[in-house]
Amino acid sequence: MHYAETPGSIPVFPRPAALALRLPPLAPLSVALTALARRITRRHPELLTRLGSDGAARFVIDPTDLPMVLQFDLRASEPHIRVLRRDPGGDARIAGPMAALLGLVHGVYDGDALFFSRDLVIEGDTAATLALRNAIDDAELDLSEEIDALPMTLSRPLRALIRFAERRTGVALTRPEEDY
């Protein structure tokens, strides 16, 4: 796999593009992301095992370069995601550029390195955050692949968002290919 050598130069969503994301309604995005999260936990049951009781928490995922936050609720048997304009509060908050958050999911960046370099902010329940970080790191997810497998009505808004993000930031929002 080709890994980024250093956090240092994480792309940030351009402000005009981010402002454009103020316009679409958030409810369809919440429905699509919840369906995506549930699909992922069904396809990767080991992810829930690894989360354990520490990970049963309400996370606020804050992409700091986008005008929205995700409330990611892992307390029930199935995950639930709400997309909101403002931080609603939760047990733990994870904040950073969208590219950093996606890079963590795809194993491009190291969470500790991003945290020590201040590219990532962690607040609240550290045990819950660690459980989530480790479970996702182990799952070797490819979000594009997971989105493609969703029903068309749900995958369409997410694909449109991904294409928009890739065009605007130059960040590939898929898991890099292994090259060794």
């Binding site: 796999m1 890994y3 050598e5 960046y109 500790d112 390195a113 970080r133 182990d138």
Partner: peptide, 10 residues
Amino acid sequence: RQRSRSYVAQ
């Protein structure tokens, strides 16, 4: 051992 697979590989 508490670090990510990205750290390990690098």
